[in-house]
């Protein structure tokens, strides 16, 4: 028996079209939950700030959701949304994203200094305009920090979907494990980590562009 190399480049070459499909699937399945999660978290977060009593129950529910093992949720969903569908994987991931993003939105909005809010009122902002022009922009750094956490965890959690037949790059782990063949596992890990790193970098870049006013604050 001759020595097997750790990475078989020829396998990568032959399977590249397949890997690309998996990568694409992975990107979609991790991105959609973050976007949808953010779209839902914004109004819910606003509601929690407006009606404080909503906040504790909402966070409680979200924490319970967050604590549910993802695999269990996938399995429960299969009868409803089908085996090996994107939807089955994306629904729980959307809730996980919300669990991170709702507190981020609430924290961001409550971090708006009271004197800033008061002076906006005093200058004649209407409530809606104040929200859009003053409070939300000031909340952006905190929301983006939440978004970074949500993005990375979403990218990593998609892989678990492989156990119910739809896990993007996660498929490579199962494939490699079943065949005692390391190349796909290594390719999978490298791509997932790269994907997370790129997503994180993009969000940092977005933060720099969107909030030049907060960048230098730490160093000032």
């Amino acid at each position: 028996m001759h020595e097997e190399p750790l990475v078989r480049w020829d396998w990568i070459g032959r399977n590249w079209p397949n890997i690309q499909v998996l990568l694409e699937d992975h990107v979609v399945m991790s991105l959609v939950p973050i976007v949808v999660g953010l779209l839902v978290a914004l109004p819910l977060g606003l509601a929690c700030v407006r009606w404080r009593w909503l906040y504790q129950p909402t966070v409680g529910v979200m924490n319970v959701v967050y604590s549910l093992p993802s695999l269990a949720v996938f399995i429960v969903l299969i009868p409803v949304t089908g085996l090996a569908t994107r939807t089955t994987v994306m629904i729980p991931l959307t809730f996980y994203a919300m669990a991170v993003l709702i507190p981020a939105v609430v924290d961001g909005l409550t971090a708006v200094p009271d004197h800033v809010r008061q002076s906006a009122v005093a200058m004649g902002f209407t409530p809606l305009r104040r929200l859009l022009r003053v409070e939300l922009p000031i909340a952006v750094p905190v929301v983006l920090a939440g978004l970074r956490v949500a993005a990375v965890s979403s990218i990593s959690l998609v892989s678990v979907g492989a156990l119910v037949g739809r896990g993007g790059l996660g498929y490579l782990f199962i494939d490699g494990w079943q065949r005692q063949f390391y190349t796909p596992i290594i390719v999978g890990i490298v791509l997932v980590v790269l994907l997370a790193a790129v997503a994180d970098m993009l969000l940092v870049l977005a933060q720099r562009l969107l909030t030049p006013w907060s960048r230098a604050r730490g160093s000032a």
Partner: peptide, 17 residues
């Protein structure tokens, strides 16, 4: 009413962004 009345407070209340 408020757009016609200037208002200044202790911490200035400037918009940080």
């Amino acid at each position: 009413l408020r757009r016609g009345i200037g208002y200044v407070i202790q911490q200035a209340g400037l918009f940080p962004h």
